Amino acid sequence: MSAVKLKIAIQKSGRLYEDSTALLKECGIDLRNVKDRLKTESDNFPLEVFFLRDDDIPQYVEDGVADIGIVGENVLLEKNKKVSTIEKLGFGKCRLSIAIPRNQEYGGAESLEGKRIATSYPFLVSQYLANHNVTADIHEISGSVEIAPGIGLADVVADLVSSGSTLFMNGLKEVETILKSEAVLIQNNQLSEEQLQLLNTLLFRIRTVKKAKKNKYVLMNVPNEKLETVVSLLPGMRSPTILPLASTGWSSVHSVLSEAEFWDKIEQLKEAGAEGILVVPIEKMVL
């Protein structure tokens, strides 16, 4: 195995930890016991893993302490470090939103003029206000932002939202989205050629796993006289596989459907004559 290794920083706890470690495992990367560890190595891929606070990951990658990192876009943009985003990972989705007391009306960004805004994202909120020519008083809070209006600390909050239940429980309502965020893979801008080769290998595996999650393998039985209609509904990667069944006049059709069009296509396939439709998750998908 090459002496060159990639060093990756991931969240040591919190909403991205589980998905980040699961992604590495789905990429075939075995990690030694990661429980309560700050650093570990893979036994079958030249990768060293650092477990850090998410707020620190952009800085570590910029400084080259870590070569790459998995972090939320919200943290990445708030920290404003000189790193490159190389892949959106599709998990950890949330949004940074403006929320106000439920009994108030929202009149757009201009209604924030002169307000006190509590947030853990002062840089992003300042950018948003500047883009709308609004002047407001930003109170930076490291946690429990949603209680600020209730205790008189602020009039408005700008906080991360996923389901909105926390805002609701604190008498707030979401009125505007500043940023939509998900986990991203970032890299240091001065990697060596050997490190870039390793990164490309890792990216190939990540994209293979992502592609598989967005598609389903579908098998169905189709009367031969309806094959043409059914096949016309199946985009597939090239064309569907068609195999004769033991029953005369029937064939088994195998294809791949994207998650986005899956339910609509299944309904169309049933109407076209497909029966016994079997849907199988895809573990890896190499194109």
Rank of each mutant, 00 (worst) to 15 (best):
V230D: 11
Q268A: 15
P244C: 03
W250A: 05
L227T: 07
A260V: 15
K211G: 07
K265P: 14
L269Y: 00
V256D: 09
P240W: 00
L227M: 09
V256Q: 07
S232Y: 03
L203F: 12
I206E: 08
R205L: 02
K211D: 07
W250S: 04
W263M: 11
K211I: 01
V230I: 02
A246H: 01
E271L: 15
V253T: 08
V218G: 02
I242N: 04
K214T: 09
R238S: 10
K270A: 13
L233Q: 05
L269G: 00
F262C: 08
W263P: 15
H254W: 13
Q268L: 01
L257N: 12
L269P: 00
K214I: 05
Q268S: 09
G236M: 03
D264H: 12
S258Y: 15
M237F: 04
I206P: 05
A212I: 04
V209G: 11
T208H: 04
F262E: 07
T241H: 10
N224A: 06
G236W: 02
F204P: 13
V209F: 02
V209N: 11
L269E: 01
L243N: 00
V253G: 15
T208E: 08
T248R: 10
L234F: 01
N224E: 11
I206A: 13
V209D: 12
A260R: 14
E261R: 12
L234G: 02
